Amino acid sequence: MLLSLTIPLLASCRGDGDIDVSSGVGITASRTGCPAVAIPDGTGDITIFDPVTSQDASAIDVVAVVTNVRSACNSEGEKIYTEANFEVQARRSDNRGARTISLPYFSTVVQGGSAVVAKRIGTVDISFADGEYRASAPAKAASYLDPVAARLPEDIVDKITRKRRAGDADAAVDPMSDPAVKSAILRSSFELLIGFQLTEEQFKYNATR
């Protein structure tokens, strides 16, 4: 299940939700083509068992989580470039001996809340020192978007920003309630999703524990 996306609106020098009553009614807000960065439900942690056929608490070998997600976006170039840096923190049950494990993670670009337009798989190596239960390592994901795909059509922009005077038939109608506006905003909205690349059994464990 994908996390819900908060969709910003249109660029303006006024504040989000400001209403201009001097020359008519118009809602001004800010919008950016940069994708929202999120971790899908159930993919932000991973549990490794030993033996792998058991899911008993006594068989837990390593538990790891994705945390400290930070993103930066550049929308000024030919492509909208977004980079998400994050940390993987892990804990093992047996601290004897030095050990390195490789954990797979994914980065997926999703359009409109459901359409996957790109997916990459990476790995992050976690190295435990002898005698240590905990270890961590940095990782990152990135995406490139076509600015045209992330831009609202001009007619939709006009519907949202058009000044409405008191007495107009649609003066009290929120333009965001228009199905065409909702659909256009959804189509031009993207997410960069990151999380562990889980097996079916690992995902079921996360969902049911």
Rank of each mutant, 00 (worst) to 15 (best):
G167Q: 09
D45C: 07
A36V: 05
S177Q: 15
V117P: 10
K159Y: 08
A166Q: 11
D168W: 07
C73E: 09
A166E: 12
D168T: 08
K163Y: 13
D50K: 04
G24I: 06
I48K: 04
I185Q: 15
S127N: 05
Q202F: 08
I48Q: 06
D41E: 15
K163V: 14
R165P: 12
S114G: 10
Q55C: 03
V157W: 03
D178E: 13
V88Y: 00
A29D: 08
G122K: 08
Q55T: 10
D50S: 06
D174C: 13
V148C: 01
N206M: 11
V109I: 11
A141M: 00
V69C: 14
E87K: 15
D16A: 01
P179D: 07
G24L: 06
D178R: 05
A72T: 15
Y205N: 10
T47I: 07
T82I: 03
R14N: 01
Y105E: 12
G24T: 08
V124D: 02
V109W: 01
A137D: 02
G113N: 09
G33H: 01
V63H: 14
R70M: 14
E132A: 13
A169L: 13
Y81W: 08
S107A: 12
N206P: 13
A139H: 03
C34N: 10
V109R: 04
D168N: 10
S114H: 09
T32K: 06
V65H: 13
K79E: 11
R120D: 10
I156N: 00
S30K: 04
